[in-house]
Design a protein around this nucleic acid. Sequence first.
DNA 1: ATCCAGGTGTGGTATATACCAAATGTTGTG
DNA 2: CACAACATTTGGTATATACCACACCTGGAT
Lengths: 248, 248
Amino acid sequence: MAGSAKRVIPQYQRAQEAVLEILRTQHLQAGAKVPSERELALRFGLSRMTVRRGVEDLVRRGVLVRAGTAGTRVANVSVMRVMDTLHAYSMTDMVKGSGALPGSRLLVFAPGSASRELAGRLAISPGDGVITIRRVRTADGVPFCVETSILPAARVPGLAGQDLAQNASLYGLLRARYGIVPEGRDSEISLCAVTEEDAALLGIEAGINVLLYRSLVRDTAGVPVEMTSSVSHPQRVVFRSQSAQLKL
Amino acid sequence: MAGSAKRVIPQYQRAQEAVLEILRTQHLQAGAKVPSERELALRFGLSRMTVRRGVEDLVRRGVLVRAGTAGTRVANVSVMRVMDTLHAYSMTDMVKGSGALPGSRLLVFAPGSASRELAGRLAISPGDGVITIRRVRTADGVPFCVETSILPAARVPGLAGQDLAQNASLYGLLRARYGIVPEGRDSEISLCAVTEEDAALLGIEAGINVLLYRSLVRDTAGVPVEMTSSVSHPQRVVFRSQSAQLKL
DNA sequence: ATCCAGGTGTGGTATATACCAAATGTTGTG
DNA sequence: CACAACATTTGGTATATACCACACCTGGAT
């Protein structure tokens, strides 16, 4: 019924959005109780089952936690990096999925040439052009990580700083303008002492240990398209993953 | 009292089991088509919605892959194996895999009873018996992490401290003695300040930030078998993962 | 004031039904 | 034989309903 668009967004996803909206507008903190499923259903004009499906997704993504028969509450982590094996989320989508408004501020956009080691990783020749992008990522305006990406310049001709000026998603650009679809990634999580510069950007004490996430992203052909290394805020970021192994 | 509650197994989990059973008995290879939801519902005597719920779990766990309106298929196993560095099941094997000699020292082996929250995570009843195992893990004799495992006591009758005395692998024991095969895990990596005790064990300064790895391991039926949380040495541990997107 | 019984609200499960869009299968025509 | 037209199958979504077990609150008896 009603107006039909080509891409129909399912009601349960709208319900999800609506719940996230409630979290935002009501400034619900971690541990705050969320309206019951029946209540939400009534409010959204949907059936409980439909609302429930949306809520379950939010629970699965770690935004909400169920307290059994004592209601459902807001989880205590603001930003999650879901290391899902099936979906290579863009950071932008990841933040959105955590119920926050994603943003980014461009710090550096610099053409350069690849060192021998970098060239090796990116599968290009030493001296080949690369582009270094450095950004502060924010969720609801609060910075949660400083990210540095390095891409082979040949893959992204014409890419300019202003393309990333706003809150644009790099992956969105790669896909839309260059037809590059990130498919696989090798990643690594470790610790490092935060530099003074990064500490200032994140609003934390310099020199303390923080999470360092580094990854190499490949396209559908397995060719490297991006090297990323990002430093995360100690309290605001959690890496999650779900996996299953099959043995028959 | 203190006994296990009735703990009724939901039909959709039975449906899951039944589907896995079909995969086994019919020797369905990766890519093979699985009976349709309506067909399964008919076969199991359940409603389609109930069956669907089970199937969705299997999809989420990576066992099955949906091919839209063209049916549902068995996932490609080889792809799943690629990512098992981060999701390695046995720490012992992991250490071996990095070329070092694995070892462990048992700190605590304590029976106890589950709190409400713990019971919820392990899918047992509050008050049910659990076993807490705390070990220092070493590589070539050098400690690199302090690990705490909690298992439902009912799953491992007769398990004793000396079983883990030396360099025995807990997972090896689970498999060999109890027939428990770890299959999937939900995991999470974050930061925490190291306690004095752990700091002393790892030979690092107390209070600094270290990597905290927490996971819930499930067996082939999706039933929780172990909760782990481990604190890693800041310089000696790196979490790696490889992932590829799955397409059939 | 304390305690306990019972009502109410909550999530968890299960079913029957319905319609849609896309993919597949079948059939009838050129 | 090739190919278009049609019917069927499949997963995807959405709803209404029902019952359960547990947590919580409230009111009344002690």
